[in-house]
Write a protein that binds this DNA or RNA. Structure first.
Lengths: 132, 132
DNA sequence: TTAGTTGCAAAAAGTTTGCAGCACG
DNA sequence: CGTGCTGCAAACTTTTTGCAACTAA
């Protein structure tokens, strides 16, 4: 594992939700040994490929990354305001998927299930910012 | 409705699955009255906003668009090989979502559910191409 | 005439690649 | 020494914006 990969991993460990490559880079800029944007991208690509991090694409076209806490396949429930994320084991969703698929004669290979909303904390101290 | 919007709608009507803005533009290039890429983007943005088309982001970062057959909120089951798409009413998924969310104390604002696989036809005459 | 549409060219924004230098074994 | 990591700068891709010309009522 390269230095860049360790640094990126460290940045992701310190994060609550998903970080874009640029976010990661920003966090590393102030450290003792800054990491170039190029290396951040390269490290993220490798980590994603190895399954150590999840990748998500935002509606604005950025790729975002997050450390996988739970191994294996799972889904996310992300707070729009603070970025807090819950990983969901979605056995029941997957059951539904199989059902729906076979009803249409499809064999399902992959699926995306992502939920966004507001976490308990942000619901209480709701002030502004709240998105569409 | 502008000429560009009509042209874009026409292109989407002739498509089986999702088209990127560039795809739409390519299809219109050979017509009697080509439409500029700029206008394609503008038309797609307006159509998406008005709910006439769905938007999806590919893993490669392109936005893709497809005519909405059914009104209202729904999800997609897309064939990876031929692009055929089934629109799903996902009442049961949404029920699950509410359940999961309240279990974690979240209030859910939005969700993404997309399924990919192989349609009945492509399963039969399966040859190659099959992805990840 | 005038408000709105069009599309070229250029700018943005995010990501990837070429390449020379550096580090470490 | 040499292999491979690093990071600057430049290229690339997709999308957006400025602006002058055009279109249609």
């Amino acid at each position: 594992m390269t230095r860049a990969q360790r640094a990126v991993l460290g940045a992701l460990e310190g994060a609550t939700g998903f970080l874009s490559a640029q976010d990661v880079h920003a966090r590393l800029r102030d450290g003792a040994r800054p990491t170039g944007l190029t290396s951040v991208y390269r490290a993220l690509a490798l980590l994603a490929e190895s399954g150590a991090v999840d990748t998500l694409r935002t509606t604005t076209g950025e790729s975002t990354y997050r450390l996988c806490r739970s191994a294996g396949h799972h889904h996310h429930l992300t707070c729009q305001r603070c970025g807090a994320t819950v990983e969901l084991e979605a056995r029941s969703v997957e059951r539904w998927i199989d059902q729906v698929a076979s009803a249409h004669g499809y064999r399902v290979e992959g699926h995306t299930v992502e939920l966004t909303g507001h976490c308990p904390r942000c619901q209480r101290r709701r002030t502004a910012t709240a998105a569409r």
